[in-house]
């Protein structure tokens, strides 16, 4: 009975239309549609469609970002409803992200945060100029699976090593994974500081986080 509404939800994400995403989410609440059904059968298939178009080269990064923002807009409406119904969306992983101390660049970090969040990760964004102990405290407080550390300058990227070391000193490694990114960050650097991975772009970061969660699940089962 909600087929038209679910189709409109999918379309709102495919179009990257935040207003339509918000409107359909509100409509779902008014009409009594289970928010989990709205997410899993409405919005998520829309996002998957955009993802597959992106992979095949028919859509570009701005399409992805618009879709992700529309997704997050819908989620902002549905979250209180989920809470009211004591329901919870299955979370793919909890990620704490931030830009290292001494560095105030945030575009890349925000991109990664938006994409992760739209892809079903719970994201806690600590902002910029974040001290290592704040990464540690936030990771503990939010039971983070992954800590993402961004740095744009060669003079600040050493801060990524400090975060890895601080998490280790707090006894949270290797349980909490660390991923790093930013213009000067290379595979070699990530390996040298003992990070669990790095990505050169936001789409890659989602793939990396997904892989790390699968690895963690595998390790837990094994």
């Amino acid at each position: 009975m909600y087929e038209d509404l679910l189709a409109a939800m999918r379309q709102s994400i495919a179009d990257g239309d935040q207003d339509a995403a918000t409107a359909t989410a509100n409509q779902a609440i008014e009409e009594g549609l289970d928010p989990l059904v709205a997410i899993d059968e409405g919005y998520v298939p829309g996002l998957s469609y955009v993802g597959s178009c992106f992979s095949s080269g028919e859509m570009f990064l701005p399409d992805m970002m618009l879709a992700a923002r529309a997704m997050n807009a819908a989620m902002a409406v549905l979250k209180p409803e989920l809470a009211r119904r004591s329901q919870e969306r299955s979370v793919r992983g909890r990620v704490v992200i931030g830009t290292v101390k001494g560095d105030i660049h945030e575009i890349g970090k925000n991109l990664v945060g938006t994409m992760l969040s739209a892809s079903g990760f719970e994201v806690v964004d600590l902002g910029v100029d974040v001290a290592p102990e704040r990464f540690v405290d936030a990771a503990r407080e939010h039971s983070a699976d992954i800590v993402g550390v961004s740095a744009l300058l060669t003079t600040t990227m050493t801060g990524q090593r400090t975060v890895v070391e601080s998490l280790a000193a707090a006894g949270m490694r290797p349980g909490v994974k660390v991923i790093v990114g930013g213009a000067p960050v290379t595979r070699a650097w990530a390996a040298e500081i003992g990070a669990d991975g790095y990505s050169e772009d936001a789409v890659g970061a989602v793939a990396l986080a997904t892989k790390l969660m699968e690895g963690a699940a595998g390790a837990a089962q094994g």
């Binding site: 570009f60 990064l61 991109l111 772009d201």
Partner: peptide, 8 residues
């Protein structure tokens, strides 16, 4: 101009 696929 941004690379449309990666944003780079």
């Amino acid at each position: 101009a941004m690379d449309l696929r990666s944003g780079a």
